[in-house]
Design a protein around this nucleic acid. Structure first.
Lengths: 220, 220
DNA sequence: AAATATTTTTAGGTTAACCTAAAAATATTT
DNA sequence: AAATATTTTTAGGTTAACCTAAAAATATTT
């Protein structure tokens, strides 16, 4: 049974929503993530259900089956490995790779993913710090927290971003923030929760709470 | 104006048929190359004509416009660069890469092709010896002839294959023939035009005329 | 040149993946 | 719990890319 590109994208969206929300995934959440009309989602849910990739109860939302979950995991693995390729090998910036990886993840073929994985040296994280599941679909999670939860005086290393959009990533580049950068939270303003951060022991910047919420750090 | 994957594939097929046959490309030739019904081709020709990618006269066949030719050339460039990537970087054999490249060639994005080209060291030929047009769409052709035209006593180096199908390529692997291999044609049998070939100064093999016709060599 | 054969197009249909508008089901407020 | 609001589904439609069968155009044979 063949799985189309559109079907794969729905499975990936459902996987990510389920991961974030923890409960049954509703039609409207999917429609929001996929930028499609709710009616189109219902349409697709029927097809995915027929193919046993999801468990679907009308008006009740959906959950991925084992097989659906496997497909989504492989897709995310492919997406993230291609992102590593684009950044590490082709020299793209981390804000330029999403759309390309979105296409590359759908390329199908025998040993492609695993060869790519080997070629890249089995990276465990992609250029945004997201974990890359291994060939058996196992995930490695890190102990990381949002910068917004650090207390003044605490140090950390940037390990990831929650917002993957180009404007946010470009802003981070501009102020010298990226994966692996060490920082020290020096103060927090009570009024708006904005934080003062010393970057790499040099520049001191003010980050809004929104920015702090979208940055993952490993406390050190 | 967006060009779909299916449209790109038709343009590529038309480009290749025109290159080989030299005249107006007929509906049935395209149908043969694309493995589709003639009626489907007519359908597509109308669309391509509307988009000014081909010049189409009913019952008379088609020719690519400048723009159509440009699209086809870029597509072939992408296909062949990805083939180089798959063989040189990921370690695929030359008989395994066609279907993957067929998918990868459709990945769209700003500087992807040119970055890939740079990463690969601006290769001029793909793993089958086919020329890779440069970023401006310029082609480099080699002085090469089919092995079938060599005279006994002539030496040559394998520069390409005409048949790209896996069975042929695997047969070549088996007898020790591949790009860059030096050979000496020692004799030809008048009855069936089969040839005796000394490979790399070592093994002597008999090749059918069909095989000799599908091998390109540079006479040395 | 008329008859026949071949090629191409037209007519009409299908499927996946989308859509809007209306109907139905579920959830929330009063 | 009834009324209202929200969410989801159903009904019916569109488009690209395919299809088969019949009709039309072109090419070939006699």
């Amino acid at each position: 049974m063949t799985i189309t590109t559109a079907e794969e994208n729905y499975l990936k969206a459902i996987f990510k929503i389920a991961e974030k929300e923890g409960k049954a995934v509703l039609t409207n959440s999917i429609a929001g993530a996929m930028n499609t009309a709710a009616a189109s989602v219902t349409d697709m849910l029927k097809r995915l259900s027929d193919k046993q990739l999801i468990k679907y109860e009308k008006y009740r939302g959906v959950a991925l089956t084992e097989e659906g979950s496997r497909v989504a995991t492989v897709l995310i693995r492919k997406h993230r490995l291609w992102e590593v390729f684009l950044v590490d090998k082709l020299g793209f910036a981390w804000d330029e790779v999403h759309d390309l990886a979105e296409q590359l993840e759908h390329v199908q073929g025998e040993s492609l993913v695993d060869r790519l994985d080997t070629f890249l040296g089995h990276p465990r994280f992609d250029p945004h710090g997201d974990p890359i599941p291994d060939a058996e679909g196992r995930w490695v999670y890190r102990q990381q927290v949002r910068l917004s939860v650090l207390q003044p005086g605490q140090r950390g290393v940037v390990t990831g971003v929650d917002d993957h959009a180009a404007p946010f990533l470009q802003y981070l580049d501009q102020i010298g923030l990226g994966l692996g950068v060490e920082l020290l939270l020096t103060a927090r303003t009570a009024y708006d929760q904005s934080v003062q951060v010393l970057i790499g022991g040099r520049a001191e910047v003010t980050l809004s709470d929104k920015v702090a919420q979208n940055l993952f750090v490993k406390v050190s």
